Amino acid sequence: MVYKIRDKETGKVYEVTIDEETNEITVYDVKTGKPVKTVNMTIEELKEAGYEVEPV
């Protein structure tokens, strides 16, 4: 599923895909559409880390 996340401190917005089964999150560069990095976190962990998470 695709989400937009926003860093509450910097205001930067990222587009991510989240595999609900493995909790693998792939972060994409919004301008190029290319993957930047992959992390292993849940949506709740993202929120605790200071991100706003919205489904696209």
Rank of each mutant, 00 (worst) to 15 (best):
Y3N: 04
I5Q: 00
T38D: 04
Y51Q: 01
M1N: 11
I18G: 00
D29R: 00
T17A: 06
N23W: 07
V53T: 04
T42K: 05
E15N: 14
V36D: 03
K37E: 06
E44G: 09
E52I: 08
N23D: 07
Y51A: 02
K31R: 07
G11R: 02
A49D: 07
T10R: 01
Y51C: 08
T26E: 02
I43G: 01
T42V: 01
T32R: 02
E44F: 08
K37W: 15
G50P: 02
M1L: 13
G33P: 00
N40M: 12
Y3E: 02
P35M: 11
I25T: 03
V2C: 15
V56N: 08
P55D: 09
I43R: 04
E52N: 04
P35A: 13
V36Q: 05
R6A: 04
V2L: 12
V56C: 10
I25Y: 02
T26G: 02
R6I: 15
Y28K: 08
I25K: 01
N23K: 11
E15P: 04
R6N: 03
E15G: 10
V53H: 02
K34Y: 11
K34N: 09
K47H: 07
G33K: 08
T22A: 12
D19E: 05
G33D: 02
G33F: 04
V56W: 08
K31C: 15
V2W: 15
E9K: 15
V13T: 08
V27W: 15
V30A: 11
T38L: 08
K37R: 12
M1T: 12
I25C: 06
V36N: 03
T22K: 15
D29F: 02
M41I: 10
G33C: 12
E54L: 14
V2A: 11
T17P: 00
E9A: 14
M41C: 11
I18K: 02
E44N: 12
E52P: 02
M1C: 13
V27Y: 14
E15K: 10
I43M: 09
E21S: 13
R6C: 09
Y51V: 02
G33V: 01
V36Y: 09
V13H: 05
I18N: 01
I18M: 06
T42Y: 02
T32H: 03
G33E: 02
I5R: 00
K8C: 11
P35G: 04
T42G: 06
V56M: 13
V39A: 06
V36I: 14
K31G: 12
E20V: 12
T42S: 11
V30R: 07
L46Y: 04
V27M: 15
E45G: 08
